[in-house]
Every structure is written in C-alpha cells, then in structure tokens.
Computed example of a mutant assay.
Amino acid sequence: MTELAATFQQEAVAEAYQHRPPYPDEVFDRLEALITDEPRRVLDIGAGEGAIARPLAPRVEHVDAIDFSQPMVDAGKQRPGGDHPNLSWQVSPIETADLDGPYALVTAGASVHWMPWEETFARIVPHLTPNAQLVVIEHGPVDMPWWDGVMQAIERHSRKKNHDPKFSVVEAIRERGLLDLSGTARTAPITYRQKVADYVEQFHSTSSLARDLMTPEEAADFDTTVEEAVRPYAKDGVLELKIEAELSWGRPRA
C-alpha cells in the first residue's frame, strides 16, 4: 500500500487526474447542508488536486486542503478555482499537518483508505467544532455496458492484485470505533460526456495503473484494450457517462 500510495507523488499521475469525472453539484449542496456550526471552515484530507476543495471553497468560509503530494497540490493550484481566496493548500501527511481549525466539516474523497487511521483521527478530532461531521465521498461512472472489457485490461496490468470490490472503508473505520455513522446518501445521476482518449487516460491517475509503473509496451496494450472495449459505445469519439456519488458521514472519534 505504501508503494502504491507513492505513485500519487508522480507528476504524470497528477496530470492525468484532470481526466477523472467531476463530482456532481449535488455533492456540494449536501456538504453545505451538513455544516451546522460556526466558523464554516472545512478540512479536506487527502485533497489531491482539489476536486472537492476547489468547488467547495466559494460556498464556505474557508477550506484547508491537505495532501502529501507536491505534484498534486501544484496541479490543483493551476486548475479552476485553485487560487480562490477561501482556499489554502498544504503539502503534508494529514497526521502531521498544521491545522487551523476549528473545522465544522471534514471531507475525504477516495482518500481515507491510504491513511493511518488511528493517527489521522487523533490529529483531526481535537480541531473540530461540537457538531462537525466527517464525510467520505466516493464517485464515478455507473451502468457501463463496456465494463467487462475494461476489467480485462485492469486485471492484466494492475499493480494491486488483492483488490476486494466488497471492501468498505467506512465500515472498516466504524469497526475500529473511529466513526459514529450518522447517515448516507447517493446523488442523482448526472450525464458527463468525455472523449474516449480522456476516458482511457484517467485510469493512469490511479495508484495501480500509473504509466510509470508500466513498460511502454504494457501501457500501450492497456490503452488499446480499453479503447477497443469502449469504442463501440462512443458517438463521434465521445462517451456518455452516468456519474453518481455516495456520501457517508458521521462524528469521528479519536
């Protein structure tokens, strides 16, 4: 896991991250609604290039975006909203970050599973307002008729061979006694149109499929296999994706 996590410090991975689909607007409406305390400050842990922090910053008093990858933070600063005055960036593991709370909300988008949970929660809990919630957000395309073909490429080239599709990081954190779950919600689907080439490239923003982990021949085989799987479903070289997000929130415990 440590070796795979290190791939997020590669510039090519940070560059490919821009091709991941955006979070639906409903995610940010729900995040706003979960803030009940003042000040309306948000801590985004494992922020990456700010896919949550950047759209959320104009809606709240302030967002502190923390990530251990300098290339990710550098990329986020250059992307839309990355220079918003309500947004501060910090390159650091969350368990040793300089925090400027109190925070009324903590967000984590597909990042908590990379963190040392006990140390992370021990770090953030003292900096929370009385009713602050931690929200774990997962999102991505659903109902893809081409997925079996894509999975062939993933299984052949992924550096993570023990992936358990049934694993729930939220349930694992609850079992450790680190989260009192308050609620869950799934957003309504949105339509996102993406060029086939960009759809292929976004896979290289993941820890197990980064280009630097593959030989040029492997990367070419992966790209060709995925493109052949999705091409019959594209119109004029563009795929129509249905994007949904799932939010799980509760009170974190040290």
Rank of each mutant, 00 (worst) to 15 (best):
Tyr199Gly: 06
Asp212Cys: 01
Glu15Phe: 05
Glu246Ser: 05
Val196Phe: 08
Trp114Gln: 06
Asp148Trp: 01
Asp29Phe: 05
Val91Arg: 13
Val196Gly: 10
Asp64Thr: 10
Ser207Lys: 04
Asp236Cys: 01
Asp212Arg: 10
Leu31Lys: 05
Ala132Arg: 13
Ser205Tyr: 11
Tyr199Ile: 04
Gly81Ser: 11
Leu209Asn: 10
Pro85Lys: 13
Glu3Pro: 00
His113Thr: 02
Pro165Glu: 04
Gln10Pro: 03
Leu213Arg: 14
Phe68Asn: 13
Thr2His: 11
Trp147Glu: 01
Glu244Lys: 09
Glu228Lys: 04
Pro126Arg: 14
Gly237Arg: 03
Ala245Ser: 08
Phe68Cys: 11
Pro80Ile: 02
Ala234Arg: 03
Arg156Pro: 01
Ala245Thr: 02
Asp64Ala: 12
Ala53His: 06
Met144Asn: 12
Glu175Met: 02
Ala5Leu: 12
Arg123Leu: 12
Ile137His: 09
Ile173Ala: 04
Thr7Trp: 05
Arg41Lys: 15
Ala122Tyr: 09
Lys77Ala: 15
Arg30Cys: 02
Val230Ile: 11
Ala122Leu: 07
Arg41Trp: 14
Gln9Trp: 03
Ala245Gly: 04
Pro93Asn: 14
Leu34Gln: 07
Asp198Met: 05
Thr2Asp: 13
His157Tyr: 13
Tyr103Trp: 11
Glu175Val: 02
Ala132Ser: 14
Arg186Asp: 06
